[in-house]
Design a protein around this nucleic acid. Structure first.
Lengths: 116, 116
DNA sequence: AAAGCATTTAACCATTTGGTTGACAGAATT
DNA sequence: AATTCTGTCAACCAAATGGTTAAATGCTTT
């Protein structure tokens, strides 16, 4: 069963809406880590971190691999693309806003560079 | 009081984690609308839509303007930028993954284009 | 000032979230 | 086989979420 785009975006954006989870993504982007290593910097129980990892895994933002008694956590960056693509649609709008601001500032300056 | 970046990202990503809210953003990106107009397409009460608008407003993704007895809802696209910037950090990772995939496919093909 | 629209707020409800602790399960070590 | 280490699961809790309906607020018009 293929998840609808909307459901995927729901789970991706929801996963990203928590700063601990965003921080974990940064951590594992630098280097893959065991669950214990992931948990170490955070002032919460291992079980709590394990839940965060589950949320990230359900959004497919991380993947895991068993290595002996350890579990290796890896970033799955390509699953961020739907989010980026969704956001990219809005680029034109803030670019427009910036352009408008710039025109406004340039008119204010009016330092005579418009000859020719 | 300036909100910390983390808190802003929390509220932006949280606002985007609901498909009704994402849909509302699309709707108002095309054209500014009154609250009633925003609500019309959705199979839920006006009060529910009003709550969604509040979430979007708290994330500063929309702005409102009173016009007589109506309230005009406008997209505030530039507030999506922090989210885009956060995501942009990860571009290099999926690009890497794509490159790796491409190398793999090219080696698989091995159709003799490597002379010289 | 009364009535009528547009919208928000309040009170309520079920579900989800993000955390806890303690019991459990799998793999490695003794 | 007993112990230890890594990690998850279960049960619990308080707070937040996303919806409802009904009452209240704010403008506009009569």
């Amino acid at each position: 069963m293929v998840k609808s785009n909307a459901v995927r975006l729901d789970s991706i954006f929801h996963a990203l809406s928590d700063s601990t989870r965003r921080s974990i993504l940064r951590d594992v982007s630098a280097k893959e880590k065991t669950v214990g290593e992931v948990a170490k910097p955070y002032a919460m129980s291992l079980a709590a971190v394990s839940k965060h990892l589950k949320v990230l895994e359900e959004a497919e933002l991380i993947a895991r691999e068993r290595r002996g008694s350890f579990q290796i956590v890896r970033l799955n960056a390509k699953s961020l693309r739907p989010a980026e693509e969704w956001l990219a649609f809005y680029d034109k709008f803030w670019k427009q806003q910036l352009d408008a601001l710039q025109s406004y500032l340039e008119e204010g300056e009016d330092d005579g560079d418009k000859r020719g």
